[in-house]
């Protein structure tokens, strides 16, 4: 999916409910209560944290282009998708990203595979002295251990890795753009990879679109890597999948809940505001379906909120709270978060 399409897709989901900046924080992976709860409310897991380097200038420029092209509108500080925008949505294209799951860690996988291929390529050419593309020591140490474990001196490793890369890339979810980007970013003996700029020029696409395609490729590869089909590459994907996709702070709060502390006690122990702990609860509920919310809100209240949200086609807190004054904002957020999980 191209960058503008991605943006339009996100806006389609939050149309009339959030400001035009909400997608920016989502793409950047902002770890605020609002952004994390929106991921669940609007089912935007795919896009969370996919472009941590995105600049506000580039983002604003893209929004302006969508407005000028009449694909979206801003009304009362909310962003709306237009009919033209709906028509322009990517047709039955599967979302290939999995931002919520990888959170930028796919880059670690990339660094490892880049260095492994570069090293093996140099060794195949009998040129063992070379400057590694990847400079960080963690990657270098990891790859060194990996190569030793896999008996890099044997010819097999290089052919196995090649076969496994081809296998992963031939996944029908990917197209030739993905495959080409992945392979041409790699470097080897006397063949330095191509820069983003060179690739954007070749494909006549924007930098952001190219990078999104590249990410899609990494995510699909990681989704499909397994011991059975990729006995060599699977080790490079070690510790890439996030088991508990919680922010560090929410993780600490969660541990305290597990020990039986109440929200007030946790706030006191951690010297945090109650609002922050509420954000953590939302985050925990977003990621853990089994987390019980019965101490915060009754079953009946959840149902009332969800019913109203459905009836009014809104996820705006103020509208719902106005109609059910006895529930708190926190409870509305909690109900909406839980509600999305029931729909899943």
């Amino acid at each position: 999916m191209r960058f503008h399409q991605t943006l339009l897709f996100i806006i389609h989901k939050i149309s009339g409910q959030r400001s035009e900046n909400a997608p920016y924080y989502l793409l950047k992976g902002k770890k605020s209560g609002q952004t994390i709860q929106d991921v669940t409310y609007f089912q935007l897991h795919a896009f969370f944290s996919i472009l941590p380097q995105l600049s506000k200038e580039d983002y604003d420029a893209a929004i302006a282009e969508l407005i000028n092209g009449n694909f979206i509108q801003l009304k009362e500080s909310l962003v709306h998708i237009t009919e033209k925008g709906i028509e322009a949505l990517p047709q039955d294209k599967k979302v290939l990203l999995n931002g919520w799951q990888y959170r930028g860690k796919e880059q670690i996988f990339w660094k490892r595979i880049d260095l492994v291929v570069q090293t093996l390529s140099q060794f195949r050419a009998n040129e063992k002295k070379f400057v590694p593309n990847q400079k960080d020591l963690a990657t270098q140490h990891f790859v060194k251990d990996y190569l030793i474990q896999h008996n890099y001196r044997e010819f097999n490793l290089s052919t196995d890795i090649k076969r496994e890369i081809v296998h992963l890339l031939e996944n029908p979810l990917l197209d030739d753009l993905h495959r080409t980007l992945f392979i041409y970013r790699l470097s080897g003996y006397k063949k330095a990879g191509l820069t983003w700029e060179q690739l954007t020029r070749y494909y006549q696409m924007t930098d952001l679109s190219i990078k999104i395609s590249f990410l899609e490729c990494l995510h699909i590869m990681l989704d499909n890597i397994s011991v059975e089909t990729n006995p060599r590459l699977v080790d490079l994907a070690k510790d890439i999948h996030i088991d508990t996709p919680l922010t560090d702070s929410a993780f600490k709060t969660n541990s305290l809940f597990e020990k039986g502390y109440t929200m007030d006690e946790i706030a006191k122990i951690r010297k945090l505001k109650i609002n922050t702990i509420e954000d953590h609860v939302i985050e925990i509920v977003s990621t853990n379906k089994n987390f019980s919310i019965s101490t915060f809100i009754s079953k009946e209240q959840v149902e009332r909120v969800l019913h109203l949200s459905n009836e009014l086609h809104t996820k705006k807190l103020t509208i719902i709270k106005d109609r059910i004054p006895e529930v708190s904002f926190f409870q509305v957020r909690l109900a909406l978060t839980k509600g999305e999980q029931i729909h899943e």
Partner: peptide, 17 residues
């Protein structure tokens, strides 16, 4: 003149059989 990119060829150049 820039050649057309061909990922399979390129991979074979990086890791020759």
């Amino acid at each position: 003149n820039q050649d057309r990119l061909n990922w399979k060829n390129r991979l074979n150049i990086l890791l020759p059989s």
